[in-house]
Amino acid sequence: MSENMVMSARNLASGYDGRIIIPDMTMTIPAGKISVLIGANGCGKSTLLKAFCRLNRVYAGTITLGDRDIRDYGPKEYARSVGMLPQSPAVPEGISVRELVTRGRFPYRQPLKGLAAADYQAVDRAIAVMGIEAIADRNVDELSGGQRQRVWIALSLAQETDILFLDEPTTFLDISYQIEILELLVRLNRENRTTIVMVLHDINLAARYADYLFAMKQGQLIREEKPADIIDEALIREVYGMESRIITDPVYGTPNVIPVGNPSLLRE
């Protein structure tokens, strides 16, 4: 993959069903980095993510990929540059892991033609990178949540895009699987230079794995920077409306948010 294409939004207004969730957003996604969107429920994180993936309408302003408006790309052409893993994709009955991963090659398929050598190579590579060779011929139905998520990421990997968006990739997973998936994404980013943008709910994991954090509130971007530079008690108060103390993660040295809550409740 060559130099990553830069993606940015200028004065973007977006939403769905005619409702504007994000009134006016200007931002640039750092190429080749891991960016994480954080914010309270309903702040517009997913809406923004989907706008970048052309799943939500652009009501005003523009989103550009490279030097072209994303609306000027053909559907398959766009899908060769930008991938997206939704929160809960559907698993067809009785599909094998390899078959599912192969569907990630759709944007490269020619009408009425079978799979090309490049398709098989991309699928094999994705399966190897995600470490799912051993289960490649099993049915996806039978897999655990963590394994299943690896398979979905392998599908996105087979899509061979410059940029990969993920909507809460760790939701529904045990903590150990959450770490595993996030570390896989870090490897993907470091080895393939894939730009990764994701929504995460766990702010401590976000602080640990993100190169850049985008903190959102009510459809607006409040701050964007390296996690260590922006996470403080004031930011947490503003974004989540909650008191907290910030300590330093003893292993990674990244900020760790301790919610204060109401300690007297437990101090009988």
Partner: peptide, 17 residues
């Protein structure tokens, strides 16, 4: 159709109208 069975969002991001 094979791609549509993965859900609308997944299908769109794989380049299906």
């Amino acid at each position: 159709l094979n791609v549509v069975t993965l859900g609308d969002e997944m299908a769109s991001s794989l380049g299906v109208n």
